[in-house]
C-alpha cells in the first residue's frame, strides 16, 4: 500500500483521533450563521478555546480578541502535535508546519522593511511552526532587514534569505518554493507515497490558484512560469507550460482535461472574482485528504487531515465572526466557508 509500518503511527494516530473528535462539527456552522456575535463568542469562550480567550483577554477585545485567540489555539494545537509525535511522524509534521515559520519570517521582514514597531510585528506572527515565540521576540528586536536575515544563518531558510537585495516579493516567493521543494524531498525520503501524492496535489492546487490569478492579472507567460511551483501531480512542467501560454478563457476551458475541473466546473462561468474557485479548491483538498486518511488510519495521513481540518475550523470561525462584524451578507459568508 505504500504506507510505512503502521505501528510507528499508532500513538500519534490515537492522539489525533481524540483531538479530531473535539473539532466543531460542520453542522454547527449554519447555526453560527444565525447567531449574533456575542452568542458565538460565548459559545467559543465555553469551548476548547476558553483558555486562549482568557489568556489574551487583557490585551485584545471584541473580534480582535476572537481572532487572536483562534490563532493562539492553532499555534498551541500544532505545537502539541509536534510534542506528542516522534520519529518519522515528527519529521513530516515539522516539515509540513514549516509554512508557519515561513509566514513568520515573511511577517518579520515585511515589518522591518516598512518600519513597523515590534508590537505591530508580534501581533501578526503565529508561532505554529518550529520557531518558538520567545525566539521570534528576540529576532523582532533586530532593527534592520539585513540583521533579521543574518539571525537566520544556520537555518534552512538562510540559503534563500541571503539572496535578498531589496525585492521583498521575490524573496517571499523563493521561500514558498523552497518550502514545497523541501517538503517533497522529505516526503520522498519516507515510504509515505500517499503523503507524497497529497503534497503533489496540494502543489497542483496552489499552481491552479496562481494560474487563475496571474492569467486574470494579464501577466506574461515567462513571468507566470517563473512563479509556478514544480513537482505537481497532474500539472507537470509540460502542462504548466501549455496552460501559461493560453488566454484566460482558453485556460479555463483547458482545465476540463484535469480531475480538478469537477471541483470548479459549476463556478467556472462566474469568474469576475476568484473567491469561489479558491474556496472550491480548498474544499477539494480537504475532502481528498480526509477520504484517503480513512483508508490508512495508521499513517501520517490522519495527522495531516487533522492539521488541515483544524486550520479550516479556525478559518471558518473567523470568517463568520469577522463577516458578521463587517456586515457581510450571509451568502457571501457562506461562499467562503469550507464545509
Amino acid at each position: 500500500m505504500g504506507i510505512s509500518d503502521g505501528s510507528k503511527y499508532a500513538y500519534i494516530a490515537a492522539r489525533v483521533r481524540a483531538m479530531k473528535s473535539k473539532l466543531i462539527p460542520k453542522e454547527m456552522y449554519p447555526k453560527f450563521l444565525n447567531m449574533e456575535i456575542p452568542e458565538i463568542t460565548r459559545f467559543i469562550g465555553e469551548s476548547e478555546y476558553k483558555k486562549n480567550v482568557d489568556e489574551i483577554s487583557k490585551k485584545y477585545s471584541g473580534t480582535d480578541l476572537f481572532e487572536h485567540a483562534l490563532n493562539e489555539n492553532l499555534a498551541l494545537t500544532y505545537r502539541k502535535l509536534l510534542d506528542v509525535s516522534q520519529g518519522e511522524a515528527n519529521f513530516l509534521i515539522t516539515e509540513y508546519l514549516r509554512s508557519w515559520d515561513i509566514w513568520n519570517i515573511k511577517t518579520i521582514i515585511r515589518g522591518k522593511f516598512s518600519g513597523a514597531s515590534e508590537d505591530e510585528i508580534l501581533e501578526d506572527v503565529v508561532s505554529a511552526g518550529q520557531l518558538r515565540y520567545r525566539d521570534i521576540i528576540e529576532i523582532v528586536k533586530i532593527d534592520t532587514v539585513e540583521g533579521v536575515i543574518a539571525a537566520f544563518a544556520g537555518t534552512p531558510y538562510y540559503s534563500v534569505l541571503k539572496e535578498y537585495s531589496g525585492d521583498l516579493a521575490d524573496i517571499e516567493d523563493k521561500l514558498d518554493k523552497m518550502y514545497y521543494s523541501n517538503l517533497l524531498k522529505a516526503a520522498s525520503s519516507t515510504e509515505n507515497k500517499l503523503f507524497l501524492k497529497y503534497l503533489m496535489k496540494e502543489i497542483d492546487l496552489k499552481n491552479l490558484k496562481l494560474l487563475f490569478r496571474m492569467k486574470r492579472g494579464g501577466m506574461e507567460r515567462e513571468d507566470i512560469l517563473k512563479m509556478l511551483i514544480p513537482g505537481g501531480f497532474e500539472l507537470k512542467d509540460a502542462d504548466l507550460n501549455r496552460l501559461s501560454s493560453l488566454s484566460f478563457d482558453e485556460f479555463v476551458r483547458a482545465l476540463e482535461d484535469y480531475s480538478y475541473w469537477k471541483a470548479i466546473s459549476d463556478v467556472s462561468e462566474e469568474l469576475s472574482s476568484l473567491w469561489n474557485v479558491e474556496t472550491r479548491l480548498d474544499k477539494y483538498a480537504q475532502s481528498y485528504i480526509t477520504s484517503i486518511s480513512y483508508y490508512y488510519p495508521l499513517s501520517i495521513l490522519p495527522v495531516l487531515s487533522y492539521i488541515i481540518s483544524k486550520k479550516i475550523e479556525i478559518d471558518n470561525l473567523r470568517i463568520i465572526v469577522r463577516g458578521k462584524e463587517t456586515a457581510l451578507k450571509e451568502d457571501i459568508i457562506k461562499t467562503h466557508l469550507v464545509m
Binding site: G111, I121, A169, L328
Partner: peptide
Amino acid sequence: AIAKSVEGSVVVKSTAFAL
C-alpha cells in the same frame, strides 16, 4: 472586509507591511 474575514486581519496587516 472579505480579505479580513477569510485571510484574517493578521494576514492583511502583515501583507500591508510589504507595501
